[in-house]
């Protein structure tokens, strides 16, 4: 699940918010990327991989869900 966007490293280019499949990230008044709906993160790493400024950090575990057993 997405855990952090480094405000200092973020240049506000908006790529992470544009490609996130879960609409998790929003642009803060057009300046910085901000995590808005962390619990809807797919844990797909698209944002972390797309960020050339290495501002995004995704933890490998997804949100816990009911198990089959």
């Amino acid at each position: 699940m997405i855990r952090r966007i480094d405000e200092l490293a973020c240049t506000g280019c908006g790529v992470c918010a544009m490609i996130c499949p879960g609409d998790v990230i929003e642009m803060d008044e057009g300046k910085k990327a901000r995590i808005k709906y962390a619990k809807d993160c797919w844990t797909c790493f698209s944002c972390e991989l797309a960020c050339v400024f290495k501002a995004v950090d995704v933890h490998p575990f997804r949100k816990p869900k009911p198990m089959a057993w």
Binding site: F45, S46, E48, V58, P60, F61
Partner: peptide, 16 residues
């Protein structure tokens, strides 16, 4: 690999 596998593996090793 989509590119995220190496990152995921690395974080599992380092953090978990």
């Amino acid at each position: 690999s989509h590119g995220w596998m190496p990152i995921l593996f690395e974080k599992c090793r380092r953090e978990e």
